[in-house]
């Protein structure tokens, strides 16, 4: 279970870039952590690492629900924070997006565990003191 420590936002972005290199071109990646844990910051790095957009282009998808990067789309950055009911995931067409040949970064996906694809990666972000973050990557189910 690879674990990383970052001390600044820049380091979190750099870690995202590095993690992106090991991702298959089609993958679901859950970004799990509290408000302000750095989920969108890590997403900036992953999007950059996949060559889909520059970090400054990547902003929070909370309101718009889904941001797309790359042409053709290589990364879907999804945020389920605003959603309350599993039925809303159907309305969003999430299952169809997971089928596409792209990396799907999902914030707040752990709120709907039954609806998340398997296999998938889970990246947990924890705030330590100040700007320091502990970032843990796991494959789900284990051993994949």
């Amino acid at each position: 279970m690879p674990q990383f420590l970052t001390g600044t936002e820049e380091e979190t972005v750099a870690l995202g870039e590095r993690l992106a290199r090991d991702l298959p071109s089609r993958a679901a990646v859950l970004l799990i952590g509290n408000l302000g844990a750095g989920k969108t910051t890590l997403a900036k790095g992953i999007v950059k690492g996949l060559g889909a957009a520059e970090p400054d282009e990547v902003s929070s998808p909370t309101f718009t629900l889904i941001h797309e990067y790359g042409d053709p789309v290589r990364v879907y950055h999804i945020d389920l924070y605003r959603l309350e009911h599993p039925a809303e995931l159907d309305a969003l067409g999430l299952d169809e997006i997971f089928e596409r040949q792209a990396v799907c970064l999902v914030e707040w996906g752990e709120r709907f565990p039954d609806r998340m694809p398997s296999p998938r990666f889970e990246i947990r972000l924890e705030t330590l003191d100040g700007d320091r973050r502990r970032i843990t990557l796991t494959a789900f189910p284990a051993g994949e």
């Binding site: 408000l35 969108t40 910051t41 902003s59 929070s60 909370t62 309101f63 924070y81």
Partner: peptide, 10 residues
């Protein structure tokens, strides 16, 4: 990162 309205919402 976050839009201003999103900061209000959160």
């Amino acid at each position: 990162d976050d839009a201003a309205g999103e900061a209000f919402d959160k």
